[in-house]
Amino acid sequence: MGLPPYATLGQRIWYYSFRIICGLIFFFLVAPIVVVMPLSFNAQDFFTFTPEMLRLDPAGYSLKHYEDFFTNPQWQLAMKNSLIIAPLATIISVSLGTLAAIGLSQSHVPFKGPIMAILISPMIVPLIISATGMFFFYAQLGNWMEGTLGLDKGFVGYVKVVLAHAVLGIPFVIITVTATLVGFDRSLTRAAANMGAGPVTTFFRVQMPLILPGVISGGLFAFITSFDEVVVVLFVGSASQKTLPWQMFIGLREQISPTILAVATILVVISIALLATVELLRRRSERLRGMSPG
């Protein structure tokens, strides 16, 4: 939509001012994230650019906030918890979710509408409401597991948070995997069965490789959901299960320490990596299904 050579002055002005407006909006979208990164290298405990930083003086920059993140036991505990809870929750949501998505994409599913509504509901219901409900129910569940089953308190705490996070990730797995299955050619499974493969072999050798991109991107969504989740973990977990977002939230609500900015930068880098992965998977999946490479 280039500017035609016969455009009037008014059209020219509008054309360029529209570009400028769009540029400003893009700036609004990206600026907060970009601003955080250099600030995390601040040598001072400030949240703003010091004169040294603006002069690009090396003395104004330091890695001390990163050092704090990697040595502070609070942050390390939070990171360890995040790395325990998110993968476990992801495994549960991906395995159960993929199975159910395959079931849902069969041609004759009774009560498909209500079932879909129930499975998607964790994404629809605002987190604060899910957290409130889980707060009441998981406390009782935890008491039951500790009292009747005699399980260790710390272990029960992790079980509660993992279950809560797993259910929050399920809608994403269902949506991405059913979307991949829409383009799945059913004659392939029939062909496999025709050549003597059992349902399990067919699933792992024929169906799985084709829907794998969808499964992985659903898993990434589930992982991010758990890794970035704070409301439910605040309500369901206890201090020994605090995750990175929990620690950041506490830090932000009370006195915010610049270490948060270092953590934020690390998380931005992780999300860029995940975004790139999902984008590559999406293209691969579309190529595999013979659609345009996008």
Binding site: L39, F227, D228, M248, L261
Partner: peptide
């Protein structure tokens, strides 16, 4: 998509800083 994928707490802390 970059803000969409970035942690909610990162964006919130960024706005607090801004």
């Amino acid at each position: 998509l970059l803000p969409f994928w970035t942690s909610l707490l990162v964006r919130t802390s960024a706005w607090k800083v801004m």
